[in-house]
């Protein structure tokens, strides 16, 4: 019985870890090429979840099946990411990290509150039925929870292939490693950065959709509140390091679920942070040093 409960907690930790991992990898990819932590990143999660709901519910004139709605939402948020970068960040990209960081807070305020002003603060949820948990090898899961893990793992795999096997991935790694050197080598780094913004924002949107699947209902502040958790995973892995972010995400997911199950469910975010601060004190560069 005790063991069952333990196993179940591990599984829930891994499920939530998948949601965090998708978001953390997206955030860290954009940090890799832009060199600032984007506080507006949480809004990509929010917009992903809301656009999916709206597209599925026919707010824009036609109602799409949920998976299609989610894919369309990812693309739209990806484009939003590129637009945000062009309008707000590119014009001051030569001014160092601090102005970019502070601008990103302004951008997050604008995006979040425009949405909230439009849709109000009432909670929304995805049109998905409540499912009964099935037994798989003694672990109780719904199909959706299983789906979230699969989506998370597939995303990790795709990002791994992108970074290691494609020209864009190589350009991204080069830009991240040394932008001026990449420039000299003939890489159009501005273009690389835009493409990275697209991927990063779309990953954020996917994380938001997965979050909405697991933890309905949600409000316009959802992404901003969850940002803390994603930051924890990102920092734990060392900012700018996709593989570290994945590892950090599962670590944080486990910590949060173990804390909620065995200590107190009121402090879920705090467990993520106690771990983070502990790690930072010992290893300020995160658990996984090394190259992008």
């Amino acid at each position: 019985m005790v063991f069952d409960n333990l196993l179940q907690t591990v599984v829930f930790g891994l499920i939530e870890g998948s949601v965090i991992a998708v978001g953390a990898v997206g955030l860290t990819l954009s940090y890799g090429v832009t060199r600032f932590i984007n506080f507006a990143y949480g809004e990509f999660l929010t917009y992903g979840a809301y656009l999916t709901v709206f597209l599925a519910a026919g707010v824009f004139g036609m109602s799409l099946p949920l998976p299609v709605a989610a894919v369309v939402a990812l693309v739209l948020v990806g484009l939003l990411g590129v637009a945000v970068s062009r309008v707000f960040f590119e014009p001051i990209s030569d001014r160092g990290a601090l102005p970019l960081l502070i601008t990103s807070i302004g951008v997050s305020f604008i995006l979040r509150n425009l949405l909230q002003g439009w849709v109000g603060v009432s909670a929304k949820q995805l049109p998905i039925p409540l499912l009964r948990r099935q037994e798989y090898f003694g672990i109780r899961l719904t199909h959706l929870e299983l789906g979230v893990v699969v989506a998370g793992v597939v995303t990790m795999l795709l990002i791994h292939l992108l970074l290691q096997r494609t020209m864009l991935g190589k350009r991204m790694r080069a830009t991240s490693g040394n932008r001026s050197l990449a420039e000299v080598a003939g890489i159009d780094t501005t273009d690389v950065i835009r493409q990275t913004w697209f991927i990063s924002a779309a990953a954020g949107a996917l994380s938001g959709v997965l979050y909405a699947v697991l933890f309905a209902p949600f409000r316009p502040g959802v992404g901003f509140e969850y940002l803390i958790v994603i930051f924890a995973a990102t920092l734990l892995g060392g900012i700018g390091r996709p593989y570290g972010a994945m590892l950090g995400a599962f670590f944080i997911g486990l910590a949060m679920n173990f804390g909620s199950t065995y200590l107190s469910a009121n402090y879920t975010r705090a467990y993520a942070f106690i771990i983070l601060v502990g790690v930072l004190l010992v290893r300020p560069e995160g658990i996984r040093g090394g190259e992008f």
Binding site: I102, I105, F109
Partner: peptide, 10 residues
């Protein structure tokens, strides 16, 4: 109100 604050930042 907070959109205004955001624009101010930018």
């Amino acid at each position: 109100r907070f959109v205004v604050i955001g624009v101010l930042f930018v």
